[in-house]
Design a binder for these strands. Structure first.
Lengths: 120, 120
DNA sequence: ACGGATGGTAAGATAATCTTACCGCCCTGA
DNA sequence: TCAGGGCGGTAAGATTATCTTACCATCCGT
């Protein structure tokens, strides 16, 4: 299972280390660039220290990788399975951002209203 | 500047709140599902508490959005990479066929109506 | 108005991180 | 050979953030 918390932290740690080396940086350089102390970087890569969202974002930028890759998120484009979804997504992509926002809110409302009575 | 640390935290906070509501969940439900206390969720959405990588990942999964969108990462491919599109598409898939039909017509109408004057 | 659900916030207890320091390893040059 | 420097891992007390419980206000549906 990939959503085990411990496994997740371990994978992030490994990828942080891998990405840093690929970027040709030392822990000390990273620490200085992010305004941290070197042990903090070391512990991040050992999986013994949490990585905050801010730090994650800065690290991804610094290492020139995506946050998604660091986290082991599957690339996952829109589900190719259902053709209706493809059609819908195509239509959605033509909308202006604000229209999309309104639509999303509408959808959420529809789902809440029309759900069957047994739903907790 | 989008990589200002304070702005980043604020944007994440806003998106967490937005995504949660779009997912139709209360702070209490989220807290229970993630094994947190409700105030923690509240502070996350207020930008007063850091969000760890683990939590970020779990929240993204729970809300059916990508981590990248939560963090405000610029979409690399403007294509189907927009998590809002994925979310919307997923929502659409829950609709009954006839409702989807009507919605698609509505989308087309929105697209035509709200276009700027130069549009043919 | 009541009861229940929701969300914001406070304060002390708790757990995490920070900071400094020391350690060993691997180079490289004197 | 061995001093010097860079690198990375780890320990321990100081510091800071988070947790936990609690109280409050607001909004609904009854």
């Amino acid at each position: 299972m990939t959503d085990n918390p411990t496994e997740r932290r371990t994978q992030l740690a490994e990828r942080l280390k891998e990405a840093r080396k690929l970027a040709g940086l030392s822990q000390g350089q990273v620490a200085k660039l992010l305004g941290l102390h070197r042990p903090s970087v070391s512990e991040m890569e050992a999986g013994n220290r949490r990585v905050s969202a801010d730090e994650l974002s800065q690290l991804a930028e610094l290492y020139d990788v995506s946050v998604a890759w660091l986290m082991g998120e599957v690339p996952e484009t829109v589900d190719a399975a259902d053709p209706r979804l493809q059609l819908a997504a195509r239509e959605l992509s033509k909308l202006k951002p604000e229209d999309l926002e309104r639509l999303l809110k509408l959808l959420a409302a529809m789902r809440d209203d029309t759900s069957d009575p047994k739903e907790p």
